[in-house]
């Protein structure tokens, strides 16, 4: 008996395990293969939020209050007629950031015309032009500020402005060949770019 008993008990328990193993594995595989559960049968909903009135900002470098994209501003008071060596003119232009973002700008100068190669231009950031000189020889200059190198970047935050004194001179050493020139001009180009990093 005991022998059967001893032999019958293990034989009865091991058969149950063997019978349960396949369905458990099948269920586990099903769970693994379909982790979302029974979504095909779930209810769904969606909500939308509409943003109204969105627009882009603008970058605007204004000169003497004249803004707008890629504008040209005339300052005829920078010009002198009948210049002789040693004479100069100066004027203050106000460079303002009237746009929606901080910016950096840099200045480039070009001179043209028959007298252009002889003209010398200085830019003084933060400088102010002195009063008009109507006695001859006419010598106008910039007071204060720091000399601005060509291409040097100047940061001007939104709403801020900087004075820029422009001095145009005919140097004392101007060559004899530049007597009697009837054309000559100076063009100051200010290129601004949005500041995208703090």
């Amino acid at each position: 008996m005991s022998g059967r008993h001893r032999s019958a008990a293990p034989g009865r328990g091991g058969g149950l395990v063997r019978r349960l193993v396949p369905p458990v594995l099948a269920l586990a595989a099903a769970v693994a293969l379909f982790p979302g559960g029974g979504t095909l049968a779930a209810w769904t909903d969606r909500a939308s939020v509409a943003a109204e009135g969105m627009s882009t900002g603008r970058l605007d470098l204004a000169v003497d209050g004249a803004g707008g994209l890629d504008t040209t501003h005339a300052r005829p008071d920078l010009a002198l007629q009948g210049m002789v060596p040693g004479e100069s003119s100066a004027a203050t232009v106000v460079v303002a950031n009237t746009g929606d973002a901080d910016l950096r700008w840099s200045a480039g100068v070009t001179t043209d015309g028959g007298l252009g190669p002889a003209l010398e231009v200085e830019l003084w950031l933060g400088g102010r032009a002195g009063p008009d000189d109507t006695t001859y020889p006419r010598t106008e200059s910039c007071t204060g500020g720091v000399r601005l190198a060509p291409g040097e970047a100047v940061r001007t935050d939104r709403g801020a402005s900087r004075d820029l004194c422009v001095r145009v001179s005919l140097p004392v050493a101007t060559d004899d060949a530049f007597q009697g020139r009837t054309t000559g001009s100076v063009s100051l180009r200010l290129d601004a770019m949005q500041v995208t990093t703090p």
Binding site: L59, D60, L61, A62, V63, A66, L69, D70, T71, T72, H73, A74, R75, P76, D77, L78, A79, L80, Q81, G82, M83, V84, V93, V95, G99, L103, G113, L115, A118, L119, V166, V168, L170, T174, F178, Q179, G180, R181, T182, T183, G184, S185, V186, S187, L188, R189, L190, D191, A192
Partner: peptide
């Protein structure tokens, strides 16, 4: 943006 300032005519 770009702004250009022109001087008018210089003569000697």
């Amino acid at each position: 943006d770009r702004a250009v300032v022109t001087s008018g005519t210089h003569t000697s």
